[in-house]
Simulated assay, not measured.
Amino acid sequence: MFETPITVVGNIVNNPFRQRVGDQEVIRFRMASNSRRRTPEGEWEAGNSLFVSVSCWGRLVTGVGASLVKGDSVIVVGQVYTSEYDDREGVRRSSVEVRATAVGPDLSRCVARIETLRRSDTASTVDAPEEAESGDHGDDVGADPADLGDAAGTEALPLTA
């Protein structure tokens, strides 16, 4: 009822790991969101960092498990909360956690190829175009993004990490 929505942009800092909780699966990972700021001299310096644990349930398990690894730039949308626990020495600790509702690559810092997962019940009632079923999306699939232009013939901007 009083969930706190949040969007976090950052990098995955450990390899996502899959767990079974009861009869469900969950994928968890930690991510860091780092800020930078420009000094009066015009140089960039590191700012504050936010580290959060992310849990992905349901349909996110398949996509995150097949797509993301340590170091990937991601955008995570979900509800944030504080988890409290006792560590091995019995000291009370807390951590910021996000239960993700959406996770995706940060396309300002990477290039991604999209594969749509189709439900078996939806696939039988909706006729998909032949090229979508075959995975053939034109000659530019797998091409260097710097070599691709838009429909007007302008060059694509080079990507930086």
Rank of each mutant, 00 (worst) to 15 (best):
E43R: 10
R37K: 15
R38V: 12
G71M: 10
V8P: 08
R18D: 07
V80K: 06
T116M: 12
R88W: 04
V96Q: 09
R99Y: 02
A151L: 09
V111A: 09
D23T: 15
E41R: 10
E84Y: 04
E97V: 13
R36W: 15
I75N: 01
V98M: 03
L148R: 14
P40S: 08
S94P: 00
T116A: 13
R113K: 10
T39W: 11
D127V: 12
R18N: 09
A146N: 11
A46K: 13
R36H: 13
G71K: 06
T39A: 07
A66F: 01
V126D: 00
Y81P: 00
G153Q: 09
S95H: 07
P129G: 00
M31Q: 06
A161D: 14
G71P: 04
A132P: 00
A123N: 05
S94K: 10
T39K: 12
T82I: 11
R119A: 10
S49K: 10
L60W: 04
S73F: 03
V76H: 02
V74P: 02
M1L: 11
G42T: 10
V126R: 13
S124M: 05
A156M: 03
L117A: 09
C110D: 09
P16M: 06
G63I: 07
E133L: 14
G142T: 11
A128E: 06
S120Y: 03
F51S: 02
P5I: 10
F2L: 07
R119H: 09
R88T: 11
G22F: 04
L50A: 10
E84N: 06
R113C: 03
